[in-house]
Nucleic acid binder design. Structure first.
Lengths: 364, 364
DNA sequence: AGCGATTATAGAAACGTTTCCGTTCCAGCA
DNA sequence: TGCTGGAACGGAAACGTTTCTATAATCGCT
């Protein structure tokens, strides 16, 4: 291919100065040119198939119109839904997204962020993973002027200045409890995620509070340590089963956990929802397909919120305090955004039949 | 934040020339420096927290280490699996990926590619959508020196010079037919995708051939026009049902189509696999979860293949013929890569019981 | 006619690299 | 001693923009 035309070529072709060409091409505000000149330049652009060199432009303007997105993994549709929304939103504002996966490794996580910053991205969207292990990283990032929006979880940091978007974690379990309780369930067990995970702890809190408010004296007994994966669901269900505790409803920490429960239940000849009801958390479209009552985290809305926050940060750098110590001068936008989850009632929950308390029957 | 240090700052701090600093920082091959000088420079880099300005570097070297990925949509896990693999592979070679969605709109599709090219990406991975509508676009891209790997479908172009990776389309249906036939099924219907889609046509061909080879005289009668979405599955199944044709097995064009079938079947009181067997195409993990016998397109392998192809193109630009007309000088790599699908046998298929030919029973 | 104000245009600097090309220094050798 | 050649290093050009500053032209108005 012939060498790409430069702005100088355009200027020469149109018989104008390079400033003129540049201003006209970029529709520089506050510059006035005769229609005829403008026409000549535009025609030159056409004939030479000129398009500006992005590197040169960003070198000069220090604006890449790119934002980095760091996510642990793209597997599963939670993050792909989220990124779907982010891409759509940012694209509308002519921002490109640079996608990175950290595969759950704190070291890679940090490296990816580092690389993105060296690439001069205008902003970052980073999932918070291993809040404790990466604490130093997040603290360092806070010293930076790079606009950042975090998501999915909280960092251990006391005074964050960057906004954070996540699900209203306690509400996830609370919605599930309320739904089941209203249906008449009284023995509701929660197969919780790993206790190391702060989100899991919050969901646990939500569960305990909701149960308390319903009048359950010591709800702690209704928590089963499980995890987010299918095997955790299996193991958790197994343990619950062997404990002989009676139950009529289960809340699974994730849809995978839910699958584990369903698998074991089937093996044991138990039917859902006839023998017990099941609510999953964050199952998305997959839960819909499976007819599972589910608490929707609304990843799309999360993505949109993140994008909007980042866009305002990008648009008005002042909203983030500069690291040199001066106070924020712009509008201070709220830092912690909790996206409200939604309950989708489907076929995996129904009113309990008194005689079908699973554990009780097993204990007979 | 203080202004970022430049290579000149490093040079000054280390008391060397800027060339020296640059060479040492980049470990420029074929340059020899005293260990002591190297030490001084490296130390300066540390103290100044120097990291090179990416735009300036790119401007000079014309290498962005970025590749653009254009995909119709991130919804569903086919593409997220694919991109998961792509990101992983390219990241290992220090390439970043710029992600775009075209939302199935040919105009946006073209714009995205345009934008990416203007950003001087080193290469492109583009899904072929609307092969006919975008024909001119693909032809134009072929005139370009930008390394490109296409995927997911074929363009209508006669002489492509860029490699293309896709599933072995006919094999998708053939595998399904073979599996069902071996199990003893004889009345196998294919709920096909939209006939405008070239992939659907090829899958149809595969189906017809496979059926012929099994000895079915006129297999055309076993094709039901449906589509890829859930409602298409519903409608297709409905029509099949109303046609009263007997069948013992169905092949669904996609997992969504399969869901549609399952939904209607349930409403009609039909059980899978007792009343008829069902095979879906490209259901991935979701099919595994649902216990559906499925033809796996292996998106991960597709992603890896694409990445590897692009990497060789990037590494050895000669493998792509230059647009100036000279013949390709490098190794000519095969252009059309068909990834072999895999059959996963699960619970949605079983041997047919002679008395349960669905349509026949309905006709009684 | 003269003059400031506005409009229309251009030249050249600056952004931060990499790299071409050149210089210095010194050991080795005839 | 004079010369060669390689090792070690530095100056400055070039990449293609945007933008600062300057200049020529036009115009309204006294």
């Amino acid at each position: 291919m012939a060498k790409r035309a430069t702005i100088r070529d355009v200027a020469r072709e149109a018989g104008v100065g390079v400033t003129t060409a540049s201003n006209i091409v970029n529709q520089h505000p506050g510059s006035s040119y005769k229609a005829e000149t403008r026409g000549r330049v535009l025609r030159a652009v056409q004939t030479l198939e000129y398009s500006p060199n992005w590197s040169a432009r960003t070198l000069r303007t220090r604006q890449t119109l790119a934002v980095g997105v760091v996510v642990s993994d793209l597997l599963g549709n939670y993050f792909s839904d989220l990124i779907y929304a982010v891409e759509k939103r940012l694209d509308a504002h002519h921002y490109q997204i640079l996608l990175c996966q950290s595969h759950g490794d704190p070291v890679i996580h940090e490296r990816q962020i580092q690389v993105l910053r060296e690439r001069n991205v205008d902003g970052l969207l980073v999932q918070i993973v291993h809040a404790s292990a990466n604490n130093a990283l997040y603290r360092r990032l806070e010293m930076t002027t790079t606009p950042i929006v975090y998501f999915d979880s909280k960092a251990d940091l006391a005074d964050m200045t960057s906004p954070l978007v996540e699900s209203n974690q306690p509400q996830l379990t609370r919605l599930a409890v309320d739904h089941l309780w209203k249906m008449g369930h009284r023995e509701i067990f929660f197969l919780s995620g790993s206790p190391h995970h702060i989100n899991a702890r919050e969901r646990r809190e939500g569960f305990l509070q909701a149960m308390s408010e319903c009048g359950v004296p010591s709800p702690e007994g209704y928590i089963v340590e499980a995890g987010y994966q299918e095997e955790h669901g299996q193991q958790g269900f197994q343990r619950l089963w062997e404990s002989r505790k009676p139950f009529t409803a289960l809340i699974a920490s994730s849809i995978y956990c839910g699958y584990g429960v369903m698998g074991r239940a089937r093996e044991m000849g138990l039917k859902i929802p006839e023998d017990f009801s099941l609510v999953t958390i964050g199952g998305g479209r997959e839960a819909a397909r499976m007819g599972l009552t589910d608490i929707d985290q609304n990843p799309q809305l999360i993505g949109e919120t993140m994008s909007d926050l980042l866009l305002t940060l990008l648009h008005d750098k002042n909203s983030k305090p500069q690291a040199n110590g001066t106070a924020p001068t712009g509008v201070s936008l709220p830092l912690h955004h909790r996206i409200e989850p939604m309950l989708h009632i489907r076929q995996s929950t129904q009113e309990p039949k008194a005689q079908s308390r699973v554990g009780a029957r097993a204990a007979k």
